[in-house]
Design a protein around this nucleic acid. Structure first.
Lengths: 233, 233
DNA sequence: AATTGTGAATTCCTTCACAGCC
DNA sequence: GGCTGTGAAGGAATTCACAATT
């Protein structure tokens, strides 16, 4: 167990391993080797062992990793032992879609509040029973509902202002869908999902026939460069 | 102008530069230095110059880059001179939200077809006028409509099958929202946007109080690791 | 025999620092 | 003087390869 700084690339991979372990456990598999795990994701087995070794010695030499055991360790490392409460700001198409998406609850995230500043939307109740509230009550509601993570789904022009409101309310973890670079305060983490960049990256790929037409799932969050020829998954 | 392999991190940053140049041009700014550009994104100015230098000598020493000129070069490099036709497979909440999202057309992407295999949805027409079609006609429609990019917005269990159909129809660029690792054939690029990983990454951040509470917009698609202690300085 | 955990080697990416040019 | 383009240096992430362990 080291105290080095853990790269975000490593923690992203831990998420992937955890998902796979959930499936393996459901399938009744008891142990898995780093090699077998690596083959599922086009990763190197040493990388998996290193990722895990940052947090402890979870494996058994000559055997591999006990699925149930490792699953539990990763769940704890990723802070997923208890539900985390999430609010969404911006109830346009995307915000609504996320609010109605059921996959979150299965993964320890619970939508606890919805905000918009359009008077025509405030007061509307979704299928889930949650009511859209005014952004004017954002601070109060976030604190009362113990919201830990906020999803920003407003237009780019409003995103920075929302970030300020949200951090002023004490939130330290933000998932931003607005296509803009946000300036976060120290101690606050902003993850931006930028669909324009993703699409333009595909456009670049189409425009520049790769000399060596290798491919793979290009998830740049698993490897610094996947894709191109790389992987990414 | 080199022939080295261009990293996906570089092309992602080109998208960011282009967006900024669009704003600068609209604001009537004529030239910009790598230093000024770098400050907007917490990047190093040498990195920007290097990114651009892979593709040519676009700058003028002592002056900087002419905004209109560089904008045009980047548009061409990213293959954005003509509209790219996009299809969406899976008309659940997310697929619908993406289909109704207007930001695409502004960025040279045009939704050309929508697919689902739920008979209750097939034949439905969206606001845009586009009709949801059966996945059984996927190949035919994709070829007739000259679709170059497909967005997969189906459940994880169906994603691999959809990928096969789509690549069989000749599509080489896929944006995948299903939380699963897809296995792409050579010459095919898959970019996966995985919300579960993003949220779990935030959960990890909350669960592991960073010793040095520095922060930054952690877009791992701009730097191998942003955030944590990343860019701040 | 099989597989982990890890130092060393490698590869890749970023930053420095300065020559070259406007 | 100011700024680009770039070789060299530095840093970070991945992979190799093997000792340690069951």
């Amino acid at each position: 167990m080291k105290t080095e700084k853990i790269s975000e690339l490593t923690t992203n991979r831990l998420s992937v391993y955890l998902r796979c372990l959930n499936e393996l456990e459901a399938a009744g598999v008891e142990t898995i080797s780093s090699q077998a795990l690596a083959e599922q994701f086009n990763l190197n087995s040493a990388q998996i062992r290193k990722d895990l070794a940052y947090f402890g010695e979870f494996g058994v030499r000559g055997v591999g990793y006990y699925v149930a055991d490792l699953r539990q360790h990763l769940t704890k490392i990723l802070g997923l032992t208890e539900k985390r409460r999430v609010a969404i700001v911006g109830m346009g198409n995307l915000g609504l879609a996320l609010a109605n998406y059921n996959g979150f609850s299965a993964h320890c995230f619970e939508i606890a509040a919805l905000f918009d500043d359009d008077p025509g939307k405030i007061g509307t109740r979704l299928q889930s029973g949650l009511e859209i509230q005014s952004t004017q009550s954002l601070r109060e509601v976030i604190q009362r509902e113990n919201v830990e993570i906020v999803i920003i789904a407003v237009p780019a022009s409003a995103a920075e202002r929302v970030l300020e409101m949200v951090t002023a309310a004490g939130v330290r973890a933000i998932l931003n869908f607005a296509p803009v670079h946000l300036h976060a305060k120290p101690g606050v983490k902003v993850k931006t999902v930028d669909l324009t960049i993703s699409l333009e990256s595909l456009s670049y790929f189409l425009a520049n026939p790769s000399e060596d037409a290798v491919s793979v799932d290009s998830r740049e969050f698993l490897r610094p460069e996947a894709g191109a020829n790389g992987a990414a998954g």
